[in-house]
Amino acid sequence: MLELEAISRSFRVGPAETQVLRGISLTLAAGEMASIMGGSGSGKTTLMNIIGLLDRPSEGAYRIRGEDVLAARPDALSGLRNRLIGFVFQSYLLLPRLNAWRNVALPLMYRGVAEGEARRRACEMLERVGLSHRTEHFPPQLSGGQRQRVAIARALVGEPAVLLADEPTGALDPTTSQEIMDLFLEMNAALGVLVLIITHDPGVAAQCRRRLVLEGGALAHDSARVPAPC
């Protein structure tokens, strides 16, 4: 489904070259629910940018559903992101001047889906995340948990292969945080979408069947593999 092969990423700042990711190989299957943990500077954001097709690795190969996505040009990359990836951010990033269903429908608009059809699908998805009564509300009128639900609906409306969540519960209180995690688990089970959550919170990571840990730009732990003897 999602194959990373010896991915490296280095940044050149002046004369010095910093290696952020070192040869990461990783395969994630459809319907998996995985978490990526790691301290600051471990490279998890860079890994997420690469998986999310926002950044390109310096070396390595990356395939989604067998498709080599690194060959695409910038505008084609936009199309791939639109079809394959759903993003959820810590700060929701909803557009304040669009109401809930227009926010959810945004990826469909960029795909060229007609407004009536986009609205129907957006409302359907809002119903699935439990916000059928809030479709006409604007983001400032919604609570934090409700905003994140709208953001999740937006990420899922285009039926992507991967749902990438960057600290999705970081700004929420524990109760709401758990509700959002339950929603991820539910969507993962119901839609069979691959969910990848980047988090600092061990409690969140523990609820994922597969747990990955990054350290110094390399994969230090993968619960799917037999832990290395030490």
Partner: peptide, 10 residues
């Protein structure tokens, strides 16, 4: 940034 992430072209 968000628009570009969810599939807006330049």
């Amino acid at each position: 940034g968000l628009r570009l992430a969810i599939g807006a072209r330049r």
